[in-house]
Deep mutational scan, measured.
Amino acid sequence: TEIRININGVTIHVRDASEELKKLIEHLLRLGADEKEIREVLHRWEK
């Protein structure tokens, strides 16, 4: 699944996002995570 996240005008594009990762990101956004925090989570997730 491919997702695009727009945070304050900055688009983060994620290829091959699992449903689990998608739910995690949606949850973090609801909690008010910023772009830097989302990128950090994505970076750690890929490892």
Rank of each mutant, 00 (worst) to 15 (best):
I3S: 03
E20P: 06
L31S: 07
A33R: 12
R44S: 07
G32K: 08
L28P: 00
E20V: 09
N8R: 07
H13M: 12
D34R: 06
A17H: 05
I3G: 03
E37H: 12
E26W: 15
I7C: 05
R30C: 02
K23M: 13
V10L: 10
D16A: 11
E19F: 15
I3D: 03
I38E: 00
I7G: 03
L24M: 12
R39S: 03
G32P: 01
E35D: 09
K22E: 08
R44A: 12
E19R: 08
R39H: 13
H43K: 14
G9D: 08
W45L: 05
K47E: 14
L42C: 01
D16F: 13
E35H: 08
T1L: 13
H43S: 13
N8M: 06
G32S: 04
D34S: 13
L21P: 00
R44E: 12
L42H: 00
E20A: 11
K47Y: 13
L28R: 05
E2W: 02
N8F: 03
R4V: 13
K23H: 10
H13R: 06
T11K: 07
L29M: 11
N8D: 08
K36Q: 11
K23S: 12
E35F: 12
G32M: 03
E19Y: 15
K47N: 15
L24I: 12
H13P: 05
I12C: 03
G9T: 05
E40I: 09
T11E: 08
L42W: 01
H13G: 04
D34G: 11
R39I: 07
R4C: 07
R30H: 05
I25H: 00
D34W: 03
H43R: 15
L31H: 09
E37N: 06
E26L: 15
L31E: 04
E46T: 15
I7H: 04
L21C: 02
E19L: 13
R30T: 06
R30S: 08
K36C: 02
L42S: 00
V41T: 13
E20M: 05
N6H: 14
L42N: 00
I7W: 01
H13C: 12
L29K: 02
T11W: 04
K22R: 12
V10K: 10
R44V: 09
I7K: 04
L28F: 08
K47S: 15
R4I: 11
H27F: 15
I38L: 07
L21V: 05
V41E: 06
N6R: 11
N8Y: 02
E19C: 10
N6W: 03
T11P: 04
W45D: 02
N6M: 12
D16M: 09
I5A: 02
E35V: 11
D34K: 08
I3P: 02
A33S: 05
N6G: 05
L21S: 00
T11R: 06
T1E: 10
K23D: 09
D34N: 12
R44Q: 08
A33F: 06
H13I: 10
R30V: 06
I7Y: 01
R4M: 11
L31I: 13
H13Q: 07
E2C: 14
R15W: 14
A17L: 07
L24R: 12
L28K: 06
A33E: 01
L28Y: 10
H27I: 10
K36G: 07
R30K: 10
I12M: 03
T11D: 05
I25T: 01
V10F: 04
L29A: 04
L28N: 01
E40V: 07
E26V: 14
I3F: 10
E2M: 07
E20D: 10
L42G: 00
E19G: 07
D34A: 08
E37T: 14
G9R: 04
I7D: 02
E40C: 14
N6Y: 10
H27M: 14
V41D: 00
E20T: 11
G9K: 04
H13F: 13
I3W: 11
R30Y: 12
K36D: 09
R44P: 01
T1N: 10
V41I: 07
L21W: 03
E19H: 10
L29R: 04
K36N: 09
K22T: 13
I25G: 00
K23N: 12
G9M: 04
I3V: 08
R30E: 04
L21M: 05
A17K: 02
R15C: 03
V14N: 02
L28G: 00
I38K: 00
S18A: 08
G9Q: 06
E40H: 11
E26M: 15
K47R: 14
S18N: 09
T1C: 07
I38R: 00
K36A: 11
E40T: 12
K22Y: 15
E35Y: 14
T1S: 11
L28W: 04
E20G: 06
R15F: 14
K23T: 13
D34E: 08
S18G: 07
K23P: 01
H13D: 05
K23Q: 13
E37M: 13
G9E: 05
L28C: 05
D16V: 06
E20I: 05
I5E: 01
